[in-house]
Design a protein around this nucleic acid. Sequence first.
DNA 1: AAATAAAGTTTAGATACTAAACTATAATTT
DNA 2: AAATTATAGTTTAGTATCTAAACTTTATTT
Lengths: 182, 182
Amino acid sequence: MLKNIDIWLERLSSLYKSQMRQAVSAEGFQLVNLEILQYLSICNAYSNTAQALSEYLGQSKGSISQSLKIMDNSGHIERKKCEKDKRVVRIFLTPKGRSSLAKMAQHMVTMPTEEPVILAGIQSLLKAWQQQNNHQGFGQCVSCRFHQPHNSKSFKCGLTGEFLPTQEKLKLCREHDFEPPQ
Amino acid sequence: MLKNIDIWLERLSSLYKSQMRQAVSAEGFQLVNLEILQYLSICNAYSNTAQALSEYLGQSKGSISQSLKIMDNSGHIERKKCEKDKRVVRIFLTPKGRSSLAKMAQHMVTMPTEEPVILAGIQSLLKAWQQQNNHQGFGQCVSCRFHQPHNSKSFKCGLTGEFLPTQEKLKLCREHDFEPPQ
DNA sequence: AAATAAAGTTTAGATACTAAACTATAATTT
DNA sequence: AAATTATAGTTTAGTATCTAAACTTTATTT
């Protein structure tokens, strides 16, 4: 049935969630609000939309839309219509949102060591999952098949053709894909 | 702010949850029901209670109690009063519960490899978390400070003094602790 | 130009969650 | 031994969340 490592992964996931629950209740938030703030702090400029959040968190668009409305009213996020595509509404963290997130992050323990092999293991798991789930994306630009190094200040995204500043390469992208499609 | 590995952990956790959501909706369940069935399938004989579930999942007793009531009515679990301590109600998976769990497990991808170093990494993270959270327990008997090898068929739990069959040593215990208390 | 697709919002109904009050039993204290 | 405190669980009431489906607007495809 469940393998040894699956049991630990299960526990890891439960404990992570439990930790988040503690963090939010200390700040009078709901779980989903922290998830949204956290996502917005690590996603790239292509991925700050309700649709992306819906895919990332695995919840319906309607539910996300409602949560965003509340967080907009409370001043934790800002929504701006995208000029290029007027169907799209881009979401941004406000200073208030960032500050709330920082407070909640204090309640969370981070990974004690940055062992490359652990990172590699986690990535191999994600890779397997994504392959099963029709390449549903979300990963750092630097590990993406579209990532093209350019110079020290920027890299090129092979999908959009745009040049992005180097700091963006560690952010999550909804278009991320490890492997070329079959 | 967030370290590289934290971002991947975040994604791991979100994807895990998202996967679970897909699995439950395919069976017409709710997320929490799968979490409960899963826990019951991996916890040991000391840990199959509402209180333990509440601690494990980080939710209130009331919420857990309500979910258990529903799952009892639907025949997925059974509740039996504990003879030793009449305050306690022990929870058991029924064949129907096991079968539902098995069906949902088919929708979940498991860890591709059982790399010991990845397992070690996950455990070191859990250890750090537990230490911050007042040793709040939950781990396999085999990694617990109370675990005392006996013979090939059984081991002794140093906390309760009982001898437990070997197969139990891979199950989760709510009393689990990595390190001796300070 | 028409049809289809995609992003987002709104609504209604179902479900889940928490906090607090409550019952029952066990463990501690006096 | 009696009283107090702690623990396990349930119930209730109110709030928040979630989904599905209908709908609007804008983009893309036919």
